[in-house]
Design a protein around this nucleic acid. Structure first.
Lengths: 162, 162
DNA sequence: GAAATTTACATGAAATTTCATGTTTTGTGG
DNA sequence: CCACAAAACATGAAATTTCATGTAAATTTC
């Protein structure tokens, strides 16, 4: 009941293979493998992956506050602050204090940033479609559900809003 | 045919939410969410995540060469070299040149390293079982298959052997 | 079998990330 | 309203990571 999948033994007959079937390994490895190509494209665009993530989040919700951005872009706060500073220097985003709550800093796409974000989101969607096609029919649909289930049950699903 | 899942709109009605349904985001976020707890345990043990990965790989295949270790531990080679150096200083592993191919450096667990590796692998297995139980019945089994499918089709599946 | 390539790893400098902490502004209990 | 706690960012120093490159050993070519 715990695990129906037989341990994936190699033909050389390893005594006790742990890593290659371990869920956390599969998740990390799948994430890496699936992202590799597109992230290479991102870097061709002169962006690092975290910067692309910021752009993508702002594409969804322009003017997001730093903390939320950090949650969605999967970047630690102090790191994000520095990344945003760099992006601001490069003219991709703008920072503006929130008059409603003056502790907050809201981040906005510049027109250049928006253009880049939109272009990349389009490419990302295309790439995603390719990936899903790679997976056998039902898998493609199901994997998203499973991942979402994992996330929802492990992390308190927040929104980029507010 | 491309995507049956309706875009997960928030109650505030965002125009065009991309990120929260994007496969690469789901993969990264799921990986993070699923790993968080266990990785915290790893750090309690005084290890950083990459170090734990090295231990886990060596648990499967003691005396692995650096390049393979890097592939399986998902760590870039020059980084791994430095991590291994640190681990050697802490007495967790040993480095020894391979007489068969003197370019290679093989990494071996020390007895302390092995003890730690085995203890953590046991905990990891328990934790994985918990995770799989969190997922609705069939999801647990299917997600691994889907992840493996992704990995296999995107990365040339190698082995830790040799 | 010598030269050219490739593989495996190490290394140094520059850049980034982490961690703890500082500052400012809000929220809260009394 | 005041004291206190919490939230949201910013920041600096230390540590790590990255990137390009260096070295040595094996492999391939011709």
């Amino acid at each position: 009941m715990t695990d129906t999948t037989p341990a994936p033994e190699t033909e050389t007959g390893l005594k006790d293979t742990f890593v290659s079937g371990y869920l956390l390994y599969l998740l990390a490895a799948a994430s890496e493998a699936a992202s590799a190509q597109f992230h290479a494209r991102v870097r061709e665009e002169g962006l690092r992956v975290p910067e692309w993530r910021v752009l993508a989040c702002l594409h969804d919700r322009d003017g997001a506050m730093v903390t939320r951005l950090a949650q969605f872009a999967l970047i630690e706060q102090s790191r994000l602050t520095k990344i945003i500073a760099q992006m601001e220097d490069r003219g991709l985003v703008t920072r503006r204090g929130d008059p409603e709550d003056r502790r907050r800093t809201r981040v906005y796409l510049s027109s250049e940033g928006r253009a880049l974000a939109e272009a990349l989101v389009i490419e990302a969607r295309r790439h995603e479609a390719d990936l899903l096609n790679i997976l056998a029919g039902s898998d493609g649909a199901r994997i998203k559900q499973a991942l979402r289930a994992l996330i929802d049950r492990l992390a308190p699903a927040e929104t980029l809003d507010a």
